[in-house]
Write a protein that binds this DNA or RNA. Structure first.
Length: 307
DNA sequence: ATCCAGGCATGCA
DNA sequence: TGCATGCCTGGA
């Protein structure tokens, strides 16, 4: 199979990109640190970091691979310009140097929403376990590269799953959020899913075509109308799922970092911190957030005894 | 053993 | 509007 080459003008660091916390479902190759597998929508990607600028990608399915990869890897982002804009002071310069090569990914909206619904009051290992359990129990198995993988379940595959089953999977009080989201998926989400999977859904349901494609504040409000989605999760889905780079999700890590470095008021509210992020970094606040988040977790001891 | 975690919904001032 | 509290589970 001929690998598909993705060439980046600036540096691309696959490991940082996948391990920075923006995405939960990826898998390291057993004995090659340069290779990762990612289940993406209807296929499995095998990604090899050939050098600082080239990714080699093979998949079990090559149909529409080019546009799918272009979207997922955000090939149209001007990384250099983004870095320049975010480099507002020496601290950010230091962070940009440390995270150079970390890129955002544009994830599947359905999977992204469920993943972040599961994220509240949890931690990355547990969230990863939860989403992998969902895939293994309800997703389509794919044999690829002599290994068994599982696609993230489609909405249709989850429709028959009960709230109790989610509870038994250890989702806790998040079970009802997932159940409700699957059963009552808002039209703007369905629309996003259909647009992202053009090969499916040839049969259009006319009743679902009234809704406009939401953007900006309207999209953020619509996301927060989903049970279990507040400001933070809405921002994550808007950034990672819908690809709106101007959003700046503030979780406890971001809060600690921002207060330490950019606030005199040590009790600054989430709302104020979120606003500050957008004021400082403008339309690329989302990239800034991810650089900071990864840096803060990896290199800075924010009064939290983790290494 | 408590305590709190990549928040949210609810109730109360 | 802003703040306190409970929520499932599980790891420290």
């Amino acid at each position: 199979m001929i690998p598909f080459l993705l060439k980046f003008h600036e540096r691309y660091d696959l490991r940082q990109t996948l391990e920075c916390g923006q995405i939960f479902r990826f898998q390291k190759h057993n004995n090659d640190a340069q290779i990762y597998y990612i289940p993406l929508k209807d296929r499995i990607l095998k990604i090899f970091q050939k050098n600082d600028h080239i990714l080699e990608i093979t998949s079990n399915k090559n149909q529409d691979l080019k546009p799918i990869l272009s979207t997922f890897f955000r090939l149209n982002d001007d990384y250099q310009q983004i870095q320049r804009r975010i480099s507002i002071d020496s601290l950010m310069g230091k962070i940009l140097a440390a995270t150079n090569g970390l890129h955002l990914l544009k994830q599947d909206v359905f999977e992204c929403t469920i993943s972040f619904l599961l994220s509240q009051c949890s931690n990355i290992p547990r969230i990863t376990r939860n989403v992998n359990n969902l895939a293994e129990q309800f997703g389509t198995p794919i044999n690829f590269d002599n290994q068994q993988f599982y696609l993230f379940p489609t909405r249709e595959q989850l429709l028959s799953v009960s709230e109790q089953q989610y509870v038994e999977m250890g989702f806790g009080y998040r079970a009802k959020y997932i159940y409700n989201f699957v059963q009552n998926t808002p039209n703007f989400i369905k629309k996003a899913i259909n647009l992202e999977n053009p090969s499916k859904n040839h049969s259009k349901n006319p009743s679902e075509n009234h809704s406009e494609i939401l953007t900006g504040i309207e999209l953020n409000q619509a996301l927060q109308n989903i049970q279990g989605v507040g400001q933070k999760i809405a921002d994550c889905v808007q950034l990672f799922g819908f690809g709106d780079l101007s959003y700046f999700p503030v979780d406890t890590w971001m809060r600690k970092f921002m207060i330490q470095h950019y606030f005199n008021d040590k009790k600054a509210s989430i709302k104020a911190i979120r606003q500050k992020g957008q004021d400082l970094f403008g339309k690329w606040a989302g990239y800034a957030q991810e650089f900071i988040y990864h840096y803060a977790r990896s290199y800075e001891n924010l009064n939290n005894s983790k290494s």
